[in-house]
Amino acid sequence: MTRLLRPSLLLPLLALAALAAAPFLGFGDRFALTLLSRAMILGMAAVSLSLLVGGAGLASLGHAAMMGIGAYVVAALDLAGITEGAIAFPAAILAAAAFAGITGLVALRTSGVYFIMITLAFGQMLFFTLSALSALGGDDGYTLYGRNTFLGADILTPRLSFHFICLGLLAASWGLCAMLSRSRFGRVLRAARETPLRVEALGFSPFPYRLLAYVIAGGIAGLAGALLANAMEFVSPAVASWPRSAELLFMVVLGGVAQLPGALVGALAFVLLEEGLAHVMSAWKLVFGPLLVLAVIFLPGGLTGGLPWRRRKQERRADA
């Protein structure tokens, strides 16, 4: 029971509970539910990214590409007349995981800032590919005929039902990532992040572990992309743009990179703050930008606190 009271676990549990209760506490209108589902979907992608950043030390600046693939698989199937979610969602997950697998084979050969840059490059490649898909509207994007159905049941359209599906999938993604990072697999990843040399000396090759983490995170982000396409009933290359990738990274860091649940808190705080500011003023970025800078400078451990991660740079230098 005491473990449940730790702030790093308590905060996200409270957040999930608040999300579950929100529709019944006066946040059940169209605007609030749209906003919350957006926050939960981005939260799902951020949780998967957190598995990479916090768990394996792999700061990807191309995670939005995985969401883009998921969203565009839904759109492409919609164009082909297939609106069955039981086909579209697994296809979105598999496509994003496959993209992660292929790009991961190359990207994971690099490390540190080169990894940041090569993931950015793959993200940009996908972005331009999506922009050139004229059948799906190119730059202008593509409007879906409707939301996916599941075995013919129209469960994604009612707002309340969609809200709880997003919440359920978010909780499931978090659970999966939490389980993974607590398992032997997660411990190898963390060990390889701290001292790769020692891990190799112990007989582990970090590469397959990192690749698997990259593929799993890609798959979850693909699921988030499929949900996002359904939430907006529209896809455009902007889903996969690099500022979106930077935002996802930001959610992870804002929440606290040291713990997985931080991503959840970070995503909620980010989206609510962004939308709240945009609601109040048109030049909201003039306030939002400095807030981001201040958060990075003064909250090194993120909102959920915990270990100061400035330590790691010195360690990395000591290794070099």
Binding site: F250, V253, A283, L286, G289, P300
Partner: peptide, 20 residues
Amino acid sequence: ARDHLAQVLATFGVILVIDE
């Protein structure tokens, strides 16, 4: 003194401000 991730994110915030 911070790691690259923090630098990327803080300067991303600076971009938002300058662009806007």
